[in-house]
Design a protein around this nucleic acid. Structure first.
Lengths: 189, 189
DNA sequence: AATGCTAATGACTGTCCAGTCAGTCACCAT
DNA sequence: ATGGTGACTGACTGGACAGTCATTAGCATT
């Protein structure tokens, strides 16, 4: 699995050869087929287990109202950077974005297990923020997808343009949060 | 070209067969090779000519300061919806997002011809808005990529999840703009 | 040591397809 | 008419690779 991960991450679905995966895992090609019926099954079982851990972490924090909404989102973006953007996992996410439409089973799984859950959590979070009066524009609770947008932006930028022009993800997220939330008392005098 | 467009848009780079492109164009496979040295050249020449027209339109409007910044961004998102999101072109953009990293020539071209230009225009626009005092958070001029983020979000959502859950792009963009800009006098009493 | 059993192997097969090129055809100049 | 020109064709080739399966290696039990 670890081997498959790095192969798919590096070369995409079509570009990955089962032989390479096997070689990287230190086993023979035939052995892979003892564990997975075909290449697609390997791919699907791989991409299915990537995003959950992070989501669970944020979800738990939200459920127990551990901190105010803004801090929660700060944590979310920080986790996203540490666990996805700055690791090899970002390739997997890019893979889902790019090849997902060829694998309805994958997108269906993702929507059901991760997206709808994530949207639900974000909506709760934003509603709480709206009630507390800390959002500059409370209407944002209608479209929680907006919270995900900057994260996707950083993934795509890293994959395609980072070589030509650096994007400061910290600053991007910070600026976005400063736009979403009203300033705390005593800030920016 | 039209044929290649729809084939690549539908099935991606690896999934498209030159024979299909030729068939769709009503010519023989060999004929394609009279116009393009190989498959990659066809792909590159295709993706190279997609985004410019829209950018030029917005760019021209910005240069001549035809309207206030907020209206300009409204126009930008409207154009994006009409000309990309709601047309087959969205597949091309998804293609660039997904397969771009395998074609440095494509991403280099895109960055040089389109992204850097787009960022420049957005920065001018945002600076003008900041000077006019109409931005809720002027720091946003540092990261104009944030303006692109919701647009990418809609592309990705449409491609992957629209079948399971509808995303109202109009509302997404409207909410985002309402978050960026201070309300006009007399709005939302 | 012999036997049986399972997990693992990797050579092999069938298929797919990018790219080629000998040949055809339409058209024009003479 | 005739020969020349170049655009176009599609059968063919070579290579790549997913998936198979007869064979082997490893190990436990007697």
């Amino acid at each position: 699995m670890q081997a498959a991960f790095s192969c798919f991450a590096e070369r995409g679905f079509a570009g990955t050869r089962m032989e390479d995966v096997a070689a990287k895992a230190g086993i023979a090609k035939g052995t892979v087929y003892l564990h997975f019926p075909d290449k697609e099954a390997l791919f699907i079982s791989l991409v299915s287990g990537v995003a959950s851990p992070i989501l669970d972490q944020v979800g738990a924090a939200v459920e127990q109202q551990a901190m105010p909404p803004r801090q929660m989102l700060e944590m979310f973006y920080r986790l996203f950077q540490q666990e996805v953007l700055d690791t090899e996992r970002r390739h997997l996410l890019r893979l889902i974005i790019g090849e997902g439409s060829s694998f309805p089973a994958v997108t269906e799984y993702y929507h059901r297990e991760i997206i709808s859950n994530g949207i639900r959590i974000l909506r709760i979070l934003l509603e709480r923020a709206a009630s507390a009066g800390s959002l500059r524009n409370p209407a944002i609770v209608e479209t929680p997808q907006l919270i995900m947008a900057p994260a996707l932006m950083t993934i795509i930028w890293r994959s395609l343009f980072e070589a030509y022009e650096h994007l400061d993800a910290d600053r991007l997220f910070a600026n976005f949060l400063d736009t979403l939330f009203l300033p705390e008392k005593g800030e920016t005098p």
